[in-house]
Write a protein that binds this DNA or RNA. Structure first.
Lengths: 195, 195
DNA sequence: GTCTATAGGACGATAGAC
DNA sequence: GTCTATCGTCCTATAGAC
């Protein structure tokens, strides 16, 4: 009568489990930020216990970094798919594509909006990530704008600022603010002298 | 030998103590957000125990609302002092005054930046406050723009978005981004057709 | 107005079995 | 790969003395 009975629970392969963990965590951080995130909630959302969750990500900080790494990878993939890696695309087209993509995934946008603000303080585990991300974005955009305007750096700052600001208003009131339309209208002035 | 010995500790009057609590809390929320705020840290910063702190604010939510109420009061006072309540002031001047004031108090700006993002979720204790605040701001600005542009509402959205976005970049890199200068330059395009 | 004492959880993380 | 059990810490809040 001794039952061999191994594995009454699913025991997903590590890669799939990791993917599930990242999905759940993305949703929860968007709702509550990193400081408001609890490992218990993530574990529950995955049908795991907390030690089970920690087996995959090591620590709470590790969990956050896993989410950000995954986003980088996805974003890079998506942008190449949409635009090709062509050098013929204008900065304005790049921005428009980005806004269109963001308009379709409010959860991700919220993830970044919350973490961007939270991580302003130097002891936030994503502080360095967001500092590097902002520098990379501004440098890339500045370079792309060089041949189109006299003040590429200042224009780049304005573009990023406007995108971030519009996203916040859109997230707070998705029904009333049309992200893509607002951006197109705003872009008309921003790119008045640029391409 | 029986000592009457009452009050070995300061025992500040309630109003002063409340003011101190709000100051300390403002700094801590700017650093960690509301979810990351601990009553213990606030109490320590005031030289109080946690129950002593709770005596003044009732609960953690009450503490947050006290901070926001106080900010509303201060901001209204400051804006009237700077501009008078005159109807002769243009929207552009109002915005410029606001940006100049913000440039001098990064801690307060950070408080709002963090709470604005955190409070996107409906169960955040400041959710309603920020929703009302955004609506009030947009309506006021839209009204002020009515005589200056054909699309006052859309321009108002852009103005708010740009101010919020510039502030984030400035907060992350105060040395490299000059908030006032960036705003002046951006305002030149935003108000191209408006006053 | 502030304290001590304490209730009653939730937290992140580790050890070790299976 | 996932579990149970547990550690030690932190958390908000209440009761009641002074």
């Amino acid at each position: 009568m001794i039952q061999p009975l191994r594995r009454s629970r699913p025991r997903l392969p590590a890669a799939e489990r990791r993917r599930q963990i990242i999905d759940v965590t993305t949703r929860l951080i968007a709702e509550r930020g990193f400081w408001g995130l609890s490992m218990q909630d993530v574990a529950d959302g995955c049908g795991l216990t907390v030690p089970g969750l920690l087996h995959h990500v090591g620590s709470k900080d590790g969990l956050l970094l896993a989410v950000l790494d995954y986003r980088d990878e996805q974003d890079a993939r998506a942008l190449v798919a949409e635009l090709g890696d062509a050098a013929t695309v204008t900065p304005r087209e790049i921005c428009a594509a980005l806004v269109r993509r963001n308009a379709g995934q409010p959860e991700i946008v919220r993830l970044f909006a919350v973490l961007e603000a939270e991580s302003l303080t130097p002891d936030h585990p994503a502080h360095d990530y967001f500092e590097a991300r902002q520098r990379r974005t501004l440098e890339g955009l500045t370079a792309a704008l060089k041949e189109h305007t006299a003040e590429p750096e200042a224009v780049a700052v304005r573009i990023v600022a406007l995108m971030d600001g519009l996203q916040i208003q859109w997230l707070r009131n998705p029904g009333e603010v049309d992200l893509v339309a607002q951006w197109e209208a705003a872009a008309a002035m921003l790119f008045a002298d640029a391409g």
